[in-house]
Amino acid sequence: MGRLAGKVAIVTGGASGMGAATVKRFRAEGAEVFVADIQEDLGGEVAKETGATFARLDVASNEDWISLAAQVEKRFGRLDVLFNNAGVVGGENTVDRIDLAVWNRLISINQTGVLLGCHHAVKLMRRNPGGSCGSIINTASTVSYVALSHDIAYSATKAAVRNLTKSVAVWCAQAKTNIRCNSIHPGPIDTAIFSHAVPAGTDMAPIMKALNAMAPVGRMGRPEEVAAAAVFFASDEAPFVTGAELVVDGGMIAVHPDLPRE
């Protein structure tokens, strides 16, 4: 414990799933944390439970980011960590049946939202007392490497986050900002995002069975396992790690399809 003592962090999508798990872990490690989410009731509960601060944030809104940055600076005078975690799936959207409204929504949240977070975090971190420094962590996906045929929007946006992260990392390094930027690539993690991706009333039992069978380890990941990866990137244990990708998927993308064996 204490790996993030004295640090101030923002966790977007902090009201549920991997975001809520990361808020709890960051707080346990000693950080002051802003739970940034559009889900006010859930976000407020997480903040109350952990001693964090809730801030309503639509990640696709530049005005909301400006307001949050001002709130963080006024209260603590610094920002050390941004976990750009908020994201949504598109559901059944294929290249022949793409819904442009869904496409544009995912671009605005999964891609523009990450960009805006990086932009405002860098501005705050460069003004930190004692000198420019900080860690930005972007939630990408295993879908950054291998695409979903049924969700072209999610596939495209998560691939974009992978390279956006590298662009931010390289610029920050070359500008001598002492700000790092890395991405986490979860595989199937046991959160509510899967139930949101299927029609209401769908029998989830066979879907959950298939999800548990995706990785060689034979189970879905836990939100806390992603939070542990975020702690490493956020901590002072990773000063030479930037532009990196940490895959948290139980070996899913490490295995090639094989022929049946007796």
Rank of each mutant, 00 (worst) to 15 (best):
A101R: 15
Q71E: 10
G30T: 08
G131W: 15
I38M: 13
A70W: 04
G131V: 09
V33C: 12
T50W: 06
G87C: 13
A55I: 02
L68K: 02
D58N: 14
E73R: 14
G113F: 07
K48I: 00
G134L: 06
V81D: 04
G91E: 05
I107M: 10
P129L: 00
N128A: 09
E73S: 09
E92Q: 15
L82S: 06
K74I: 02
D41Y: 10
L68S: 03
L148D: 03
I38D: 03
N85G: 03
E29C: 08
V81S: 00
A101W: 10
V146A: 11
L82I: 05
C118Q: 06
M125D: 00
A70L: 06
A153R: 11
G131D: 07
G91I: 09
S61C: 09
A55M: 05
C118I: 10
A121G: 09
C118V: 09
C118F: 00
R75G: 02
A153P: 14
W65L: 08
G117P: 14
G91M: 10
S67D: 11
E63I: 07
N84Y: 07
G44N: 10
L68N: 06
K123C: 01
E32T: 12
N138H: 05
I66S: 05
E92R: 15
V33P: 15
G113W: 02
D80N: 13
L42I: 00
R126F: 02
V59Y: 12
F83D: 00
E92C: 12
G91N: 08
A52P: 15
G131C: 05
V46N: 13
E29F: 07
P129M: 02
A70D: 04
D99V: 04
N84C: 12
A121I: 09
N85K: 07
K74N: 13
G51L: 07
F76W: 14
G130C: 10
R56D: 04
R127C: 03
R75F: 00
I98S: 14
Y145T: 04
L100C: 08
L68V: 02
K123Q: 14
V46S: 10
R78K: 15
D96N: 04
A86Q: 06
V102R: 15
S141E: 03
L115F: 15
I98H: 03
L115D: 01
A153F: 05
F83C: 00
K74E: 14
H150L: 04
Q111C: 05
D151P: 12
V72W: 03
S149I: 02
S149F: 04
L100R: 13
S61V: 01
D41I: 00
S144T: 01
V72M: 05
L82G: 01
E63H: 11
D64P: 11
R78T: 12
F26G: 11
H119W: 05
R56Y: 10
